[in-house]
């Protein structure tokens, strides 16, 4: 019963929380006005700061997030301390005492009121997927040709597709060789794709097609060999340069 009454009370206080703070500081408003009439600028500033900070504290409390009551208590402490010193002319020790009283008073007054956790940071929109690279594009085109070769049960077309797949495997393992193979991919894959498209459209294979396919298979193999040979030559040069350097430096 008492628990329920307390819960209801907390509900009411949560709805109205923070609004009492400017009421506590309200005598500072007429004080600021009278100080202004009297031309005491420092005192006007102190009174205005005291009331203004109580409004800020009320605003923080109304938000009701975690840590806001602590923030409001500090705002009240600073406001009260400044008002006591600048408008009340109470001296530094007494002003500090007033500030400490306001700090603990605010903490105590708004204790046990529910606070919401801070909202999660806004999620960044997911980056769009990177467009497929030239090797991936070539592989997709080759997959279509392979599928056609399997459907037609054409061993020569399958052979070319396999040979070109070998080239693509090499390029996947060593993407730095791609510039050397770009022309090959453009010419051979494009040609093979057109042939496959015609065959799929129902064209009768001309007599020269098997030899052309053999040629394509051979050149694919040759390209792989050439790329490997170039790598070997580069390695040989590297070994020679390093050996010479070691000799020059007197290590050998």
């Amino acid at each position: 019963m008492l628990d329920r009454a307390l819960g209801a009370w907390i509900g009411v206080r949560t709805r109205w929380r923070g609004l009492a703070l400017p009421i506590f500081a309200s005598p500072l408003l007429p004080a600021a006005l009278v100080f202004a009439i009297d031309g005491q600028e420092r005192s006007v500033t102190g009174a205005a700061l005291g009331f203004g900070l109580s409004l800020l504290a009320a605003r923080a409390l109304r938000r009701g997030r975690q840590g806001d009551s602590r923030k409001a208590a500090w705002l009240m402490a600073v406001g009260t301390g400044l008002a006591a010193n600048m408008a009340g002319h109470l001296g530094t020790p007494m002003s500090l005492l007033m500030a400490a009283g306001a700090l603990f008073g605010t903490r105590m007054m708004y204790q046990a009121l529910p606070e919401t956790p801070p909202p999660p940071p806004p999620e960044l929109p997911a980056a769009p997927p990177a467009p497929p690279g030239p090797i991936e594009q070539s592989r997709a085109r080759l997959a279509r040709i392979e599928a056609l070769a399997t459907r037609r049960a054409d061993p020569k077309l399958q052979g070319v597709a396999e040979a070109m797949e070998g080239v693509l495997d090499d390029l996947t393992a060593h993407p730095d060789r791609l510039p050397q193979a770009r022309r090959f991919l453009a010419v051979h894959l494009d040609g093979l794709e057109r042939i496959a498209a015609r065959l799929e459209a129902g064209a009768a294979p001309p007599p020269g097609l098997p030899s052309l396919l053999d040629e394509l298979t051979r050149t694919a193999g040759e390209l792989r060999e050439r790329l490997t040979r170039e790598e070997s030559a580069a390695l040989e040069i590297q070994v020679k340069v390093l050996s010479d350097r070691l000799r020059e430096e007197g290590f050998r």
């Binding site: 009492a20 703070l21 506590f24 500081a25 309200s26 005598p27 500072l28 007429p30 004080a31 600021a32 009278v34 100080f35 009297d38 005491q40 005192s43 102190g46 009174a47 005291g50 109580s54 009240m76 406001g79 009260t80 008002a83 006591a84 408008a87 009340g88 002319h89 109470l90 005492l97 007033m98 500030a99 009283g101 306001a102 603990f104 008073g105 605010t106 903490r107 105590m108 007054m109 708004y110 204790q111």
Partner: peptide, 22 residues
């Protein structure tokens, strides 16, 4: 008690300032 403390500090400061201004 929190209310009493605020009355004895913030409100009292305001009243002191008001009387001081008058």
């Amino acid at each position: 008690w929190g209310g009493v403390l605020l009355t004895a500090t913030t409100w009292l400061t305001g009243i002191i300032a008001l009387f001081s201004s008058i």
